[in-house]
Protein backbone atom coordinates (compact mmCIF):
# COMPACT_ATOMS: atom_id res chain seq x y z
CA UNK A 1 0.00 0.00 0.00
CA UNK A 2 1.31 3.38 -0.95
CA UNK A 3 1.80 5.41 2.18
CA UNK A 4 2.75 8.96 1.50
CA UNK A 5 3.86 11.30 4.17
CA UNK A 6 1.60 14.26 4.52
CA UNK A 7 3.98 16.81 3.17
CA UNK A 8 4.68 14.73 0.11
CA UNK A 9 1.01 14.82 -0.72
CA UNK A 10 0.73 18.48 -0.03
CA UNK A 11 3.55 19.42 -2.24
CA UNK A 12 3.66 17.49 -5.36
CA UNK A 13 0.21 18.38 -6.21
CA UNK A 14 0.02 21.79 -4.80
CA UNK A 15 -1.68 23.45 -7.67
CA UNK A 16 -3.80 20.49 -8.63
CA UNK A 17 -5.21 19.93 -5.18
CA UNK A 18 -6.27 23.52 -4.73
CA UNK A 19 -9.88 22.55 -5.29
CA UNK A 20 -10.82 19.44 -3.34
CA UNK A 21 -12.83 16.79 -5.09
CA UNK A 22 -16.33 17.12 -6.41
CA UNK A 23 -17.46 20.61 -5.62
CA UNK A 24 -21.21 20.64 -5.19
CA UNK A 25 -23.25 22.42 -7.81
CA UNK A 26 -26.09 24.95 -7.86
CA UNK A 27 -29.21 24.37 -9.90
CA UNK A 28 -29.30 26.58 -13.01
CA UNK A 29 -31.87 29.40 -13.08
CA UNK A 30 -33.79 27.64 -15.81
CA UNK A 31 -34.68 24.79 -13.51
CA UNK A 32 -36.88 27.20 -11.53
CA UNK A 33 -38.91 28.25 -14.57
CA UNK A 34 -41.39 25.48 -13.94
CA UNK A 35 -42.52 27.15 -10.73
CA UNK A 36 -45.26 29.34 -11.95
CA UNK A 37 -46.13 31.11 -8.73
CA UNK A 38 -43.65 34.01 -8.52
CA UNK A 39 -43.51 34.09 -4.74
CA UNK A 40 -42.94 30.37 -4.60
CA UNK A 41 -40.26 30.69 -7.28
CA UNK A 42 -38.64 33.45 -5.28
CA UNK A 43 -38.58 31.28 -2.18
CA UNK A 44 -37.15 28.38 -4.17
CA UNK A 45 -34.43 30.59 -5.62
CA UNK A 46 -33.41 31.79 -2.17
CA UNK A 47 -33.54 28.26 -0.82
CA UNK A 48 -31.14 27.21 -3.58
CA UNK A 49 -28.86 30.16 -2.75
CA UNK A 50 -29.08 28.89 0.84
CA UNK A 51 -26.77 26.03 -0.17
CA UNK A 52 -24.10 28.70 -0.27
CA UNK A 53 -25.30 30.89 2.57
CA UNK A 54 -25.67 28.01 5.00
CA UNK A 55 -22.42 26.35 3.99
CA UNK A 56 -19.95 26.22 6.90
CA UNK A 57 -17.49 28.12 4.72
CA UNK A 58 -19.80 31.14 5.00
CA UNK A 59 -21.31 30.52 8.43
CA UNK A 60 -17.86 30.27 10.03
CA UNK A 61 -17.40 34.03 9.67
CA UNK A 62 -21.05 34.93 10.35
CA UNK A 63 -21.13 33.77 13.99
CA UNK A 64 -23.89 34.76 16.39
CA UNK A 65 -21.36 35.38 19.13
CA UNK A 66 -17.91 36.90 19.12
CA UNK A 67 -15.94 33.83 18.08
CA UNK A 68 -15.54 32.66 14.48
CA UNK A 69 -15.53 28.96 13.73
CA UNK A 70 -13.46 26.83 11.39
CA UNK A 71 -13.80 23.76 9.25
CA UNK A 72 -16.78 21.80 8.00
CA UNK A 73 -17.48 20.81 11.62
CA UNK A 74 -17.51 24.50 12.61
CA UNK A 75 -15.23 24.10 15.61
CA UNK A 76 -14.10 27.25 17.43
CA UNK A 77 -11.26 29.11 15.69
CA UNK A 78 -7.83 27.97 16.84
CA UNK A 79 -5.89 29.92 18.00
CA UNK A 80 -8.69 31.57 19.94
CA UNK A 81 -9.72 34.91 18.48
CA UNK A 82 -12.49 37.40 19.18
CA UNK A 83 -14.60 39.74 17.07
CA UNK A 84 -13.24 43.00 18.45
CA UNK A 85 -14.95 46.36 18.19
CA UNK A 86 -14.60 46.65 14.41
CA UNK A 87 -15.16 42.96 13.56
CA UNK A 88 -11.43 42.87 12.75
CA UNK A 89 -10.19 41.01 15.82
CA UNK A 90 -8.72 42.16 19.11
CA UNK A 91 -6.26 44.96 19.56
CA UNK A 92 -2.90 43.22 19.30
CA UNK A 93 -4.30 40.15 17.58
CA UNK A 94 -6.28 41.30 14.61
CA UNK A 95 -7.52 39.09 11.79
CA UNK A 96 -4.63 40.51 9.78
CA UNK A 97 -2.10 39.21 12.30
CA UNK A 98 -2.44 35.87 10.51
CA UNK A 99 -4.69 36.41 7.47
CA UNK A 100 -3.14 38.22 4.53
CA UNK A 101 -4.57 39.57 1.28
CA UNK A 102 -4.60 36.11 -0.30
CA UNK A 103 -4.64 32.46 0.67
CA UNK A 104 -1.19 31.25 1.66
CA UNK A 105 -0.22 27.66 1.06
CA UNK A 106 1.65 26.14 3.97
CA UNK A 107 4.49 23.93 2.82
CA UNK A 108 5.71 20.79 4.57
CA UNK A 109 3.70 21.40 7.70
CA UNK A 110 0.45 19.98 9.07
CA UNK A 111 -1.44 17.73 6.65
CA UNK A 112 -4.68 18.92 8.24
CA UNK A 113 -3.87 22.60 7.80
CA UNK A 114 -2.41 23.13 4.37
CA UNK A 115 -3.21 26.78 3.80
CA UNK A 116 -3.99 29.94 5.74
CA UNK A 117 -7.02 31.61 4.17
CA UNK A 118 -6.81 35.25 3.20
CA UNK A 119 -8.56 38.04 1.35
CA UNK A 120 -7.96 41.76 1.05
CA UNK A 121 -10.73 42.61 3.52
CA UNK A 122 -10.66 39.54 5.76
CA UNK A 123 -12.93 40.19 8.74
CA UNK A 124 -16.02 38.91 10.53
CA UNK A 125 -19.52 39.75 9.42
CA UNK A 126 -21.05 42.27 11.85
CA UNK A 127 -23.15 40.74 14.59
CA UNK A 128 -26.30 42.10 12.89
CA UNK A 129 -25.47 39.84 9.96
CA UNK A 130 -24.97 36.74 12.09
CA UNK A 131 -26.20 33.58 10.35
CA UNK A 132 -24.85 30.63 12.29
CA UNK A 133 -27.62 28.72 14.01
CA UNK A 134 -30.43 30.68 12.37
CA UNK A 135 -33.04 29.30 10.00
CA UNK A 136 -32.77 30.21 6.33
CA UNK A 137 -35.97 32.21 6.70
CA UNK A 138 -34.51 34.27 9.50
CA UNK A 139 -31.36 34.82 7.50
CA UNK A 140 -33.39 35.87 4.48
CA UNK A 141 -35.42 38.41 6.44
CA UNK A 142 -32.25 39.74 7.98
CA UNK A 143 -30.51 40.09 4.63
CA UNK A 144 -33.36 42.26 3.35
CA UNK A 145 -33.48 44.46 6.45
CA UNK A 146 -31.44 47.66 5.92
CA UNK A 147 -31.34 48.04 9.70
CA UNK A 148 -29.33 44.85 9.87
CA UNK A 149 -27.68 44.53 6.46
CA UNK A 150 -25.50 47.58 6.61
CA UNK A 151 -28.05 49.84 4.90
CA UNK A 152 -28.01 47.93 1.63
CA UNK A 153 -30.84 48.09 -0.89
CA UNK A 154 -31.86 44.91 -2.68
CA UNK A 155 -29.80 46.02 -5.68
CA UNK A 156 -26.82 46.57 -3.41
CA UNK A 157 -27.29 43.04 -2.12
CA UNK A 158 -27.26 41.59 -5.61
CA UNK A 159 -24.07 43.51 -6.37
CA UNK A 160 -22.48 42.45 -3.09
CA UNK A 161 -23.29 38.78 -3.48
CA UNK A 162 -22.26 38.77 -7.13
CA UNK A 163 -18.96 40.61 -6.95
CA UNK A 164 -17.63 41.10 -3.41
CA UNK A 165 -14.17 39.62 -3.04
CA UNK A 166 -14.70 38.30 0.46
CA UNK A 167 -17.96 36.64 -0.62
CA UNK A 168 -16.05 35.29 -3.58
CA UNK A 169 -13.47 33.72 -1.29
CA UNK A 170 -16.06 31.05 -0.55
CA UNK A 171 -15.44 29.59 -4.02
CA UNK A 172 -11.66 29.84 -3.69
CA UNK A 173 -11.05 29.01 -0.06
CA UNK A 174 -7.51 27.71 -0.47
CA UNK A 175 -5.96 24.30 -0.38
CA UNK A 176 -7.52 21.85 2.01
CA UNK A 177 -10.93 23.58 2.16
CA UNK A 178 -14.17 22.56 0.47
CA UNK A 179 -15.51 25.46 -1.58
CA UNK A 180 -19.15 26.50 -1.42
CA UNK A 181 -21.33 25.07 -4.22
CA UNK A 182 -21.43 26.41 -7.75
CA UNK A 183 -19.78 29.62 -8.81
CA UNK A 184 -20.11 33.18 -7.58
CA UNK A 185 -21.72 34.09 -10.92
CA UNK A 186 -24.36 31.38 -10.49
CA UNK A 187 -24.94 32.44 -6.90
CA UNK A 188 -25.23 36.08 -7.95
CA UNK A 189 -27.73 35.07 -10.63
CA UNK A 190 -29.85 33.24 -8.06
CA UNK A 191 -29.86 36.26 -5.74
CA UNK A 192 -30.63 38.56 -8.65
CA UNK A 193 -33.54 36.38 -9.76
CA UNK A 194 -34.73 36.17 -6.15
CA UNK A 195 -34.86 39.98 -5.99
CA UNK A 196 -36.56 40.18 -9.35
CA UNK A 197 -39.24 37.76 -8.15
CA UNK A 198 -40.05 39.90 -5.13
CA UNK A 199 -37.39 38.71 -2.68
CA UNK A 200 -39.73 36.40 -0.84
CA UNK A 201 -38.32 34.51 2.11
CA UNK A 202 -38.73 30.87 3.12
CA UNK A 203 -40.72 30.31 6.30
Amino acid sequence: MMQQRAFALAALAAAVLAVPAAAAELEPLSSFDTITDEAARSVALFTEAGKVIEHPRCLNCHPVDNVPTQGMDMHPHEPPVVRGEADMGAAGMMCTTCHGPENVRVVAQADTLTSIPGSATWHLAPISMAWAGKSLGEICTQIKDPERNGGMSLDDIVEHMSHDDLVGWGWEPGEGREPVPGTQAEFGALISAWVETGAHCPQ
Binding site: M1, M2, Q3, Q4, R5, F7, A8, A10, A11, L12, V107, A108
Partner: peptide, 17 residues
Protein backbone atom coordinates in the same frame (compact mmCIF):
# COMPACT_ATOMS: atom_id res chain seq x y z
CA UNK B 1 15.41 26.37 5.33
CA UNK B 2 12.68 27.23 2.85
CA UNK B 3 14.25 25.17 0.08
CA UNK B 4 14.66 22.27 2.51
CA UNK B 5 10.98 22.49 3.46
CA UNK B 6 9.86 22.65 -0.17
CA UNK B 7 12.19 19.86 -1.14
CA UNK B 8 10.98 17.60 1.63
CA UNK B 9 7.39 18.34 0.72
CA UNK B 10 8.11 17.29 -2.85
CA UNK B 11 9.34 13.82 -1.94
CA UNK B 12 7.16 10.84 -2.73
CA UNK B 13 8.10 8.13 -0.26
CA UNK B 14 6.71 4.62 -0.21
CA UNK B 15 6.92 3.28 3.33
CA UNK B 16 7.23 -0.34 4.39
CA UNK B 17 4.73 -0.93 7.18
Amino acid sequence: TWAALKGRAALAVDWDL
